[in-house]
Design a protein around this nucleic acid. Sequence first.
DNA 1: GTCGCCCCTTACGTTCACGTCAACTTCACA
DNA 2: TGTGAAGTTGACGTGAACGTAAGGGGCGAC
Lengths: 129, 129
Amino acid sequence: MSDRLMTIREMCDTYDVTPRTLRFYESRELLFPERRGQHRLYDRKDRARLTLILRGKRFGFSLEQIRQLLELYDPAERNLTQATATIATARERLADMERQQEELAAAITDLRQQIAEGETMLKTLQSGA
Amino acid sequence: MSDRLMTIREMCDTYDVTPRTLRFYESRELLFPERRGQHRLYDRKDRARLTLILRGKRFGFSLEQIRQLLELYDPAERNLTQATATIATARERLADMERQQEELAAAITDLRQQIAEGETMLKTLQSGA
DNA sequence: GTCGCCCCTTACGTTCACGTCAACTTCACA
DNA sequence: TGTGAAGTTGACGTGAACGTAAGGGGCGAC
């Protein structure tokens, strides 16, 4: 199964991050690995969280924004007002992402066009202007 | 027309950035406004560039990556090898963006699902658990 | 036992993308 | 003629997200 516990090194190799990064995320309360003595051990849930963290980063979110999002994925919310707030900020994040999606689609179309034009220019240059 | 020259303040108001930001972009060679005496004046092309800069930032690109992309939009390339390199890095950026688009779509679907689940939980809490 | 390796904490250093402040010029206007 | 608004350069400050170096514990291999 995938519910094996992983050492920090295994995590780093798997997700291409440094130990410093994982400890840093822990200090910012984005990860909560178990401790076997002094050593950290990461389980399936930790890995899922890390996946979401790295994904969030690629979309340009701050670690704090990501931390708030993670609360949504982690049903530790027993408090009503807390849960309401979590969902509200999640909606904002969702709106951000939807806007970004539209912009991204437009930018991709645009860039494809520019590349095509660039290539046309390139061929002109090659054919000896 | 939109080919009016704009002062730094007009630019700031229009694009919601600070003068410091515009001067910083200039120092990093992302913008090249004219000089009327000491003062900077931004034309249509500068505004187009700024739009692309801000867009790129929202996608999580660094200013240096954006600077390289801008070369593509600016046909000042008279050099063959230079133009080839520019197009090559533009292709990489495009690939990044396409990957990001897929990921983003998946993340949005995912987040919507989580929000839905969160709301279900919320109603359970509200109905008095 | 001691060597190497992996892990730990603490703490200062670094990069990016600006913010902030000081001191100066230039120009419109009272 | 000053005065204030808007612009300039230059230098130092700042927050986020780590990098890096120093010093130390534990543990299997030789």
